[in-house]
Amino acid sequence: MKLILCVIVLLVAHASHDAASPRDEPRWNEVASNDGSWIVRWRLLVEGKPAELPLARKRFTIELQIESTGDPQETPTAVLVDAQMPEHLHGMNVAPIIALTTGAVGSALATAEGMLFHMSGRWEVDVDIDDGTTVERAQWNITLP
């Protein structure tokens, strides 16, 4: 009986340890671009480590995975990342450093370092994906209390 109880305790402890891992590493968020040509997965990093929202007045990095929904061979040739507060008619006070690397076939990885939301309120993050012909936007909101 004691042995069974020990096993149960160990199983519960193991399960709770597994459940803690995703909380330490926030999951990737996913958004489709505004004409549906791309799937963009994104997450935030602070000092190189995944971070939770909100991130008011703290420098952070946006990490992006971009995949084409059409031709699987298609990858972006350039990516622009920016953020704005539409209600306040302004953007960030900083210009992020954007790096684009080609990942597996049909996907690209990008980072925008040095992002800073200097005010509370609704921020719209804009990712403009250039395929060499058109530049298509993906966007999402982040609201800081």
Binding site: N34, P86, G132, T134, V135, R137, Q139
Partner: peptide, 15 residues
């Protein structure tokens, strides 16, 4: 609704 519009895409005249 002041924020009704969103940019979908652009294409440069150079293209």
């Amino acid at each position: 609704e002041p924020f009704m519009g969103k940019l979908v895409k652009t294409r440069s005249y150079a293209r």
